[in-house]
Structures are given as C-alpha cells and as structure tokens.
Nucleic acid binder design. Structure first.
Lengths: 328, 328
DNA sequence: CTGTTAGCGCTTTCAG
DNA sequence: CTGAAAGCGCTAACAG
C-alpha cells in the first residue's frame, strides 16, 4: 500500500480510505489512486487488516461430515450467504479434523464467527462455552443445553406430520416406525409428527444408517409384526429397508409403502417418497443469522432465550408409497 | 502474549520461543510459561503471526460444486491431509462464489496456497497466471495449457480399459458409448480406454448429466442402432440411461448392460457397475503436493514440465452388467 | 479534503 | 539462556 501511495502521490491514509470509503476523498484523487491500484493489480493484505480491526471476513462452518450430501447442501447455503456478504467460509469436518481445531479457528481470530452442526456432545459443550465470547449459530439440530444460542432447524415435527397424514390418507392403518437416535431432537420430533396419525405405531430406534434400517425391518419381519408401511427416520435408513424388503420378496409399494426423510440425491434416484429438507436454505439462514450476530457484536447485548428458527419442509411423494393393499 | 509474559515473569520473546521452539529455553522457564498459557487458555492470534512471517496455515480448495458427492470426497481428502499437517482448509465453490473470489484469497495472503479443481476455462487461465507467484496444485482434471503446474488426476485411461475389458469378457460385441464433453481430458481418456476393446463403438457426446444420458440413449434407440451394452461417461449419465431404458421396457442387465464411472453413492444404491475413483485419496495427494510446494517456496526453483500424477482406479462390478444375451 | 503517527500481536535480529 | 526493540501492512485517531 505504501507503494501505491507513493506512486499515486498521496499518503497511505488516503489509499486506505479510497479503499474503505470511510471518509470522503476528492474524486480526482480517488480516481488516480484507483488507476494505480488497477495498474499494479494491488490487493490489500488481509492479515494486516484483521490484525488492526479484529475482523477478517472469514467464518467457519463445522459439519460432521462433508461427504454426507445433506451437509454439503447446508455448506452450499452457508457459502452462498457468506459470499453475498463478501465473506469467505472455512469448512471444517469433525470427522476429518483434529477435535477442537475449529474452536481454535475462532479463538485465534482466524474466523469472525462459526456456524455449528456437529452433534458430538463433548464438542457441543465447548461450543456453548465458546458462544459466550464469540458469535456462534447452531444449525440443523438444536442443542438441548443451549437455548440462548441462535438456532435454525428444519421443521421436523411438521415433516413427520406430513408423512403420517400421507400414509393415513393412502389407507394405511398399521405403521412401523424406524427412527434415528432418541438423543437427537430432530429424530424425536419426526416420530412425534408421524405418530399423530399413527398413535399406536411401534417405534424401533436405530442410528440413521442404512444398516440400521436393514437390520431393524428384518427383525420386525422375523417377529411376525403386521404393518403395511414403514416410516423411517431418514433416507439412508429407508435405503436399508428397501434393500431388506427386496431380499424378502416384498414388493414396494404394492405390498408395503416406505418413506424416508431428507430428500437427498439417493431419494430422487430411487423414487423414494420422503420429506424435503431445504438444506441450502437452512445454510443461508444460519449464515445470515451469524452475520447479524457478528455485526451486532459491539453492542454485546445479552441474548435471551429464543426459540429455534424453523425452516419449512415439503412432502415429496414418489414411487415407494401407494394405497394400502389390505386395510387392517 | 504480553499478558502471559508478564504473569510468567518473562519477556514476550521467551513466550514466543517456548511456543515455536525456535530457540532453546530453559526447561524451568518453559514449564512456567506453559503453565500460565494453560491456566489462561491462551491462543496466539493468527493474524499477527501471518502478518509477520507471511504464512497463515490455511489453504484454499476450489471446487466446481461442493454438493457433487465426488467433489465432497475430494474435499474430505484435502481436509484430511491438511489437518495432518496442522493446516486449515477454505473450501470455495465456483458455483456459489463470486468469480475469482478464491484468487483474491491467495493474493491477499489469506491462504498460503490453493488446490484447484474448477473447469471454467476463463478461471483456469487466471489460475495458470497465479501459479507463477503462488503455490498452486491442479487436481482431478489436467489443464491442457498448464503443464508446469503440479497435477494429480485419476487414471481415467485405465478406468476406461477396465470397463471395456469387463464388457468384452461378458461377450458383448456391440457397445454404445455415451461420453462426457470432449473438451475434458478425463472424458476423452475414458473413451479411449473403452474403445481399446470396442474400436468401432459409436460415441455420443453429452455433458455428464443424467439428462444427457437419458436423451442420448433415447436417440440411439429411436434410430434403430443395435448394441447390447451402454458405457457412459459417469454415474449420472448412467442414471439417465437406466431411467430411459426402464421406460422403454428394456431389462437391465439381461437385455442390456450399463456402466458408469465415478462410483458415487448413487452407484452403490442402484447397484451400478462402474469404476471407482478414489476421490479422497486424490484430495490427499493433491494437498500433500501443495504442502511440499509451499514448503519449498523459499527455494523457488523453476518447475519444469512434469506429467500428472495418476491415482489408480478400480472396477466395481455390480448388478447392471451381465453376459450378453445375443452375441452379434 | 489530506497527512502524520501510533499501534494491532507477533517474530526475530541484535545485544547481553 | 534471555530481553529490548524493530517492524510486518493496515486503520483510525488526531491534527492540519
């Protein structure tokens, strides 16, 4: 910048201000400076700027695993909103990074704030502690322990409801629910929603993997349970269920209806009836919230408990649900 | 750090050196300093460090679109290798960011180097220019124009070969090849590999989307072409082909074999025979190469033309290929 | 409207 | 083995 100032025949202060617009500069001077900047293709060193005013135009996104399509979409949303605000995004997968690396990113000032999606209880606890001193937004899954941190989640309850109503309308009376982990609010809310239409449905708890869907539906089949539809906790579980059903020679959807949750790319490929979670939209909102938080950081008013912001979901009816063949 | 120094009763210089290990410190002093650092949970401000010595422990990864599973896996690999070296990764999707945002990231010193996967010719050109001054590694797709930039790609030629040989061994004699864009080296090499077994196979050029697979195989069918198998340029195209074939009432694999390329999650879900590209491994190698480049930056020896480093691929035989029903 | 100057927090000579 | 002091490139008072 010294260079630019000297060549343009002004002081570094002036160059700084034509760049930031933080104080009036005469049009002629500004133009001259701009010309020199252009010519020498000058870009201000970000580290110096950050060192001086504490902000660096970078935020971090912490996801469990970037290769999970759903999280990648959230990341896309965050990136989109960040870019719109002129910020960069550091993506940190808990699965591939040293634990607490992302914590250091915010504590050492590399980033100005953090959007957090991890579900590791240990890390979650540290995030809560961190949120006292730095801007933090929780997305995807509300932390039971941290009601004062701004949070954005999908409307899981409504998603479950939509699924239950859809199946009920198709004439199903006996449903098997294969759910995700009880510890996750999202999973529980989905079940609650489904059970509004199927209050007596049996709930089998799994862990959101295809394997758990495969195994649990197999056990249900083996134990002679009767049901005409299976509502799973997410698409992956549904995938396992479909696989198991195919092996058992049970036709989907004519003999058995199956639903998922998430609407990942596999759902589209398989024609799975599911609930679409607008992952990108969620990322966008989370990032916008974070930006607000960062901008209002100076006026560090204590945040009171606020309910999570809910992102609307949509039912996607495809080829794995059909009218119940033998209404119970 | 001043704080720490004062409390520990030493100078900032000493604190700096117990942290960096750049000069001997007496064990007793070191221990005392460490204790204070622990107690006050001190983390050095990264910006100051970067400002002083030019490096910030951050690299950028530029991908076309993070929501494409394949790129997400590459990102995972890059992240893994970066983390192992104590570096952070900024992921930049060309699809969601302002054009050339990533260029600024390296020019303004936010990152120390860049792994680049974009295929926008315009951006590619700028990347080439950039590589003269900053550490750059190309991954996934070699740039025809930039032979002096370290590059790592999958062994597309061998992948094509494996596919061709597999189909030939199954007794197929007439193949239809639905390829990706001719402009991409990866796409062309796959075709070359396949054609070693099917020298006279017709090649239809598409664009790596499911839609193009759907459309092109439809046209081939309509034009009365005879073929017993379809080798596509990637999994997405195969997906479109499968869809079209199902609509046409053609049974896969008994009447028609279909292959993909990439081995994304959809391939596994659909039982698609394909070639596995070790995306994670590629990311790891690209990142390692970049780290070498960064570390050797001081000894800025001119790099001469080096051939791309090839990552081995593997054939994955699943349920969309079978013995040819009617050998021509 | 413009310039001078004092740091931001760290690393690193140069002196003990 | 340890300290004092000079910046890295930028911003923002504080003067003109």
């Amino acid at each position: 910048m010294q260079q630019i100032a000297r060549i343009a025949g002004v002081s570094v202060t002036t160059v700084s201000h034509v760049l930031s617009g933080n104080r009036p500069v005469s049009p002629r001077t500004a133009e001259r400076v701009h010309a020199v900047i252009q010519q020498y293709d000058y870009v201000p060193v970000s580290a110096a700027r950050r060192l001086k005013n504490g902000r660096g135009g970078l935020i971090a996104l912490v996801v469990p695993d970037l290769t999970v399509s759903y999280f990648a979409h959230v990341a896309k949303g965050v990136e989109r909103a960040a870019d719109a605000a002129g910020l960069g995004v550091i993506v940190c997968s808990v699965s591939t990074n040293a634990p607490r690396r992302h914590l250091d990113l915010v504590r050492d000032g590399t980033v100005d704030g953090i959007v957090h999606l991890s579900h590791d209880p240990q890390i979650d606890r540290e995030i809560v502690a961190l949120s006292a001193d730095y801007p933090v937004v929780i997305a995807d899954e509300a932390l039971a322990t941290a009601t004062s941190i701004p949070t954005v989640t999908a409307d899981n309850l409504r998603g479950g409801r939509l699924l239950g109503e859809h199946l009920a309308e198709l004439g199903h009376r006996q449903a098997l629910i294969i759910a995700g982990p009880e510890s996750l609010g999202s999973s529980s809310l989905r079940v609650v929603g489904i059970r509004e239409s199927f209050p007596t449905a049996l709930v089998l708890r799994g862990d959101f993997t295809a394997e758990s869907g495969y195994r649990l539906v197999g056990e249900a089949l083996a134990s002679g349970l009767t049901f005409t539809c299976v509502a799973t906790g997410n698409d992956d579980q549904a995938l396992g269920v479909l696989r198991r059903l195919r092996e058992a020679g049970i036709d989907v959807p004519h003999e058995m209806s199956v639903t998922g949750f998430d609407d990942g790319i596999v759902a589209d490929a398989l024609g799975l009836t599911t609930v679409h979670q607008p992952a990108i939209e969620m990322g966008v909102r989370a990032c916008e919230l974070l930006i607000e938080l960062i901008d209002s950081a100076e006026t560090a008013e204590a945040r009171s408990d606020i309910p999570p912001e809910l992102i609307p979901v949509e039912l996607r009816v495809r080829r794995t649900t059909a009218r119940a063949s033998s209404p119970a």
